[in-house]
Write a protein that binds this DNA or RNA. Sequence first.
DNA 1: TATTGTAGCGAACATGTGTTCGTTTGTCAA
DNA 2: TTGACAAACGAACACATGTTCGCTACAATA
Lengths: 217, 217
Amino acid sequence: MSLSERQERILEFIRAYSEEHGFPPTIREIGSAVGISSTSVVKYNLERLEKKGKLERREDISRGIRLTEEQPTGRRASASADLRAIPKLGRISAGEPIPAAGQQDSPFGDDVLTLTEDLVPTGADLYALQVQGDSMIDALVYDGDWVIVRYQNTAQPRDMIVAWIKDREETTLKYYYPEGDMVRLQPANPAYQPIPVPADQLEIQGKVVAVFRRLAN
Amino acid sequence: MSLSERQERILEFIRAYSEEHGFPPTIREIGSAVGISSTSVVKYNLERLEKKGKLERREDISRGIRLTEEQPTGRRASASADLRAIPKLGRISAGEPIPAAGQQDSPFGDDVLTLTEDLVPTGADLYALQVQGDSMIDALVYDGDWVIVRYQNTAQPRDMIVAWIKDREETTLKYYYPEGDMVRLQPANPAYQPIPVPADQLEIQGKVVAVFRRLAN
DNA sequence: TATTGTAGCGAACATGTGTTCGTTTGTCAA
DNA sequence: TTGACAAACGAACACATGTTCGCTACAATA
């Protein structure tokens, strides 16, 4: 299943040519670059390469060649990783309310946090907030951290949620402990007191699904 | 010098099509996608776009279109974000030594953690380790977290480092406190004792520059 | 020895695809 | 009103480019 020397060169040429021009080469261009006089031989080799999974072709389409994702090159993540652009919606602790789900269609300004799909729940409606203050320090979240939040209106007990307290008009990051018709918002820092809130004064804005922290250099 | 609505759509289509297929569309494909019946009109608009510096064309070459580098679009994290593929080198706590810098050229398996350039120090030689155990819990790092580490052989006091303890043949994540010809490896959890190590028995493997935690769903 | 499969060649063919050209419509300034 | 120009249309046209086909040359097998 290994490649002949010629096939290696073909692959390499396609790669270089695409890089340089922004579009793939024709069969004839490949031929003359690799030293094949007959277009049919190039086609033959392309078919082999396709079978070996090195590239994909679209029949009858000029320059219809696409290289399959290259792992080996390594380190430089191929520009193709599936990305999620997560809008940065500001800071959290004492804050303005967060726009409702969906509302954040076009977060103007390029303020997005981009993560690969595999790092966050798929298909979810996400946003990012930068943490202010240390009230969640025991939950391993500290001032400056970014929390990735999934929009949802409900939560399970012990979830770390973004809560909007209506009468106080503020948003906060806390653990969620429903207790009858009250909800206890529990900080994760013993230095802070739990906040009891009437259930009807609380609006769950989402649940923290990931945390990212950049340390000083 | 602004673009007509049609031209915007043409650009966007070329971008999307190229992304999807790996090669640019033909004039006719552009036409039918944007609602232009005549190939000459597409050509006309492509010429305009070329004059405005939005793309480059190669005459007489099928699909000879290349989009000019896009700055302004910004926000579009999609294909344009600069990515860093950070090799996952395993777990840390009791572990094998970490291969020396550069040695990790081809991290087999697609085990890389991909982050955008702006989230990590630029140009640095990075790797990722998954934390095992809770000895760094006070440093807001817990079991399961991923730490992004920059290769370096030295460290400043109080840095969170990855240390290889020669005589114990193990790797560990600790705070670094040099004290004369000894080094105190300080866990960030009071439940654990600091580890004193002779300076010559310690090899600094890198410094933690970022932390990523994915919470349970 | 006959057979099969891989590689390669070159000519012919059939589309794929960009370009040219004659026209039309509408706006703006002379 | 007339002329210049941007935008658009559609039909030809002409070359760009992938595919097919008949043939060799070899090596491995049956």
